[in-house]
Write a protein that binds this DNA or RNA. Structure first.
Lengths: 294, 294
DNA sequence: TTAATCGTTCGTTAAAATAGAACGTAACTA
DNA sequence: TAGTTACGTTCTATTTTAACGAACGATTAA
């Protein structure tokens, strides 16, 4: 390897971020063949492949992921410089927040509250299922993801999970059932229930709670999406199991009421970032501001 | 400006850091003419000069300094990546510490103590007069400078001064004078003195102290270099005015003794860095470790 | 005044990047 | 299962870019 060719690296960056050579070539206004050749040269000069050709797509190798992380730092800063040179000012880049589709929007609303105060800040919310979120974050298309899955850091990618909040899981009742006691007792035996599906760790907690209190619940509906659970809680007339934050507004308006919390059961909310040298300038303050969103 | 040419920027980086086109061309193993042409192209694509041609040297413009800061971040990280690709590991780059030539070496010794504990750390000490230190730091040839001048940040360069320690200024006596009282009195009137020169802010403090106590000192020698003052204190037989840390070893061995401290007079020691996105990884811990080196 | 140093300019040559066409697979679709 | 589309690779010809070297100009040092 003589000397790193930054133009090759730049092309690699664009392709790796985007995951698609043809489309990237169009963006860059050059031919695929040129792009392909340049990336081959980069791989050749490094001596190892950065992509594996799987089917008709390019997939980053482990080394490729590492190089992408460096490239991101390098060209992120380069783009900043270009903006400075062109416009004379440095607009804060938009903060890209990935959120798990099935998560409570109320929780997210609380998280981004500090951002909404500042009016010079742009941010994007991108709702996706968990695997997609991880892929987008790895490709530096997101700055942060909000999820209830903790992501332990592995060799390939240095995830950084930070626990933002622990929400106790509550039993929520519609108005007709608002008279039920605030502790579990026999009156709960004959009720109908709406619960999270087995996809959620909450379900297991609920099941063990039932076993403990010899409750054989009549489950009429289940869902893994908090927005859906919220609607079921509101409209089904049954008892519902979920973190109270999901139906925050309904609890405030009196439409629903919280009967009690399941003991020792929590839903955890995490902020996951990539540990990089460069980070979005708003991230540190945002993560500090939301140390305890309970 | 179409798109930033990273190879041009790379050449600019090398030249700006080094401050000399011919020598840089040799390092890069290309001709001056090629280098000159590339940098001209960069300036042309930006639309503004990065250097002013003063005499036969290149001097960074204010914009040039800004671009250099970005380039430093970009290529610093690029060099890291290259090292990783070549050697498979990431050796910590050597920490380059600039020190003011006239400062006490004992103080510096204390500062770098934490570095000497770790045996995987390389560092370089570069002693220069103040103006050169500033220039080298601005060119990113140094990571940090240790000095007794505070450098307020200006528009052109974002200096960051951190007060490391305040050393009280003491009157130091050789053994034959060790009997002098630990407060100023008439017995000090007939003594001979060694003092810092007017280049040092200490001198003014000493003068005002003299006025206050109606002391007209018989000054036999002055110096602006602490190492030199130390020798004078040791060998002249006269009283000496300086921070005690300068003659730490001699005080411990009893060769010299501290009589008293000048009231409200301190020498301040600062660590000056450039506020950048990227910093040497050791800097933060080092600056924290030495919060109070008194 | 002379010589050495340093950067620029110019014409020529060498090297690198690019487009375009042909090719090879994989995935979709009907 | 055959036809079609999507995607990446390879090859050659062409264009663009970078490079050298010599000549030049200006500044500093001897």
């Amino acid at each position: 390897m003589s000397r790193l060719n930054y133009h090759h690296l730049y092309y690699f960056w664009r392709v790796a971020k985007h995951g698609n050579l043809t489309a990237t070539a169009q963006q860059l206004a050059i031919s695929q063949s040129a792009l392909s050749a340049q990336i081959n040269q980069l791989e050749h000069s490094i001596g190892q492949p950065l992509f594996t050709r799987e089917g008709r797509t390019l997939v980053l190798t482990e080394l490729g992921q590492t190089v992408l992380n460096y490239a991101e730092d390098i060209f992120q800063r380069g783009e900043e410089l270009q903006q400075l040179l062109k416009q004379g000012t440095l607009a804060l880049p938009s903060l890209k927040i990935g959120v798990l589709s099935s998560m409570s929007r109320n929780f997210i609303d609380t998280f981004i509250q500090p951002l909404m105060q500042q009016n010079d800040v742009h941010f994007q919310l991108i709702a996706r299922p968990q695997p997609e979120l991880q892929e987008l974050l790895a490709q530096h298309q997101l700055d942060i993801i909000l999820t209830n899955h903790e992501l332990p850091s592995n060799d390939e990618i240095a995830w950084q999970s930070q626990l933002l909040a622990r929400q106790p899981v509550s039993v929520i009742a519609p108005q007709p059932l608002a008279h039920l006691p605030t502790q579990i007792d026999a009156s709960y035996r004959e009720q109908r229930w709406v619960v999270p599906s087995y996809a959620s760790p909450l379900r297991a907690t609920f099941e063990s709670f039932c076993t403990q209190h010899e409750l054989a619940p009549d489950i009429i509906a289940e869902a893994d999406d908090m927005a859906m659970l919220r609607l079921l809680a509101r409209d089904s007339g049954a008892l519902a199991v979920m973190p109270a934050v999901v139906v925050r507004d309904e609890l405030l308006s009196g439409l629903l009421s919280k009967r009690f919390e399941l003991p020792n059961s929590f839903e955890n909310f995490y902020a996951v970032t990539l540990s990089r040298k460069y980070q979005h300038p708003l991230l540190p303050s945002l993560l500090q501001a939301t140390q305890h969103l309970s």
